[in-house]
Simulated scan of single mutants.
Amino acid sequence: MRIWDLFSGADGERMQSMQAAATQAHPDVSIESVTLAWGSAYYTKLAMASSGGRPPEAAVMHMSRLAGYAPGGLLEPFDLDALAALGIREEHFAPAVWERATHDGQLFALPLDTHPFINFYSPEIAGAADLLDADGKFTAISSPDAFLDAGRAMAEVTGATGMAFGHLLDTAQAWRLFWGLYAQTGAGFELTPGRSAELDEQAAVEVVEFVQAMLDGTVAPPKQDYPGAIASFVTGRSGLIVSGEWELPAYQDAIPDVGGMPFPTLFGTPANYADSHAFVLPRQEFADPARRDATYRVLAEILTQGSLTWAGAGHIPAYQPVLDEPGYAELSPQKDYAAAGDVVVLDPPVWFAGAGSDFQARMCDAMSGALQGRTKATAAVEGMLREMDDFLATPNPA
């Protein structure tokens, strides 16, 4: 069987070891693994392979991209009975993740993980700023003002800034932060093709204004790029970084006792921006029953037996029984931010959104001036709405 994935570096090595373990457990199965560079090009190749009828038996997809593939017939649904026979059932997954894996009542994606946008912190700096509780964990924060105050306290310790956030010229960071916090306000949205986008503009402006307040030069720099934010955090020039959990290995190399926590609930409703790596079944013109059986067995083996290995890279296993295993309890700080997987908020379920999309890049562009202090928050929200309207007026090419 063939599997396409988009994992490089340490993630790629872990996935290869998980696949190797799956073939050892099922010696009658051989895996031809193909790793492609992630981004729009990957999803274009996957769509072309599916439409041409000669795709791999399985592929990795960001769940946020599913809405652009399942409705167009580019993927095949999973057989729930076949999965259940292998120990994979709906109750094993967080409801929010399982819901996004379905379309028209059928399961089109088998979630491997959730990878949320969270906070990592230096216990040394946070402790010196009197921000750790009796257990040595970051003090609970429940309001925008408390978050900003924590940043100011850490800035006094570092002599530079309290927090790091690399958004400058980035195609996703500002959107990840905005969309997670917008969900925390409890506000809704309506993105219907052919109609104007609807957001709670007051809530959206409130969120952008908060981010502007954070990027004041003391709490966090207003003009920091992605590598600059990482460098600031690992060298102790900031005590906390707003970051994806996928960067955990790099942080642990520099700060062995690095702490992690879900993004605090600042606006009343628990929510944490995230995406999910998931396995999908590209549409086969002539499906081979033996290959399909092997695919199910391998994917089930990876989820049930390999998820702990995958968690070592920082990802939260989507197959939740792993979270109760003794081995997971030994993973720090993974165990401290695992709760983020229960309140995940993915990109809007529309064909143009999701990881590596032009949509995310254009949302970030719309906010860029406001986050650098050049324009008002209202201008950023108006810009995002214009961009959303443009996407909604464009037919789905798939």
Rank of each mutant, 00 (worst) to 15 (best):
A172P: 02
A172E: 07
A172R: 12
A172W: 11
Q173G: 01
Q173L: 07
Q173T: 11
Q173D: 04
Q173E: 02
Q173Y: 08
A174I: 01
A174C: 04
A174H: 06
A174D: 03
A174Q: 06
W175V: 00
W175H: 02
W175K: 02
W175E: 03
W175Y: 11
R176G: 04
R176Y: 15
R176L: 13
R176C: 09
L177P: 10
L177A: 06
L177I: 08
L177V: 13
L177W: 05
L177Q: 08
L177S: 13
F178A: 06
F178C: 10
W179K: 09
W179M: 13
W179Q: 03
W179R: 06
W179Y: 01
G180E: 08
G180I: 11
G180V: 10
G180F: 10
L181V: 07
L181D: 11
L181I: 15
L181M: 06
L181T: 06
L181Y: 08
Y182K: 12
Y182I: 10
A183E: 06
A183S: 03
A183F: 13
A183G: 00
Q184P: 10
Q184A: 04
Q184G: 04
T185R: 03
T185Q: 00
T185H: 03
G186H: 12
G186D: 09
G186S: 15
G186L: 02
G186Y: 10
A187Y: 08
A187V: 03
A187S: 05
A187W: 04
A187R: 01
A187N: 03
G188Y: 15
G188N: 10
F189H: 10
F189I: 05
F189Q: 03
F189C: 05
E190W: 07
E190G: 07
L191D: 14
L191C: 14
L191K: 13
T192H: 15
T192G: 10
T192L: 11
T192D: 11
T192W: 14
P193I: 08
P193L: 06
P193Y: 09
P193N: 11
G194T: 11
G194A: 08
G194D: 08
G194I: 09
G194W: 15
G194E: 03
R195C: 11
S196I: 00
S196C: 00
S196H: 02
S196R: 04
S196Y: 00
A197S: 09
A197Q: 02
A197Y: 01
E198M: 10
E198V: 12
E198D: 14
L199Y: 15
L199S: 13
L199E: 03
L199N: 05
L199W: 08
D200N: 15
D200A: 08
E201K: 07
E201A: 03
E201D: 11
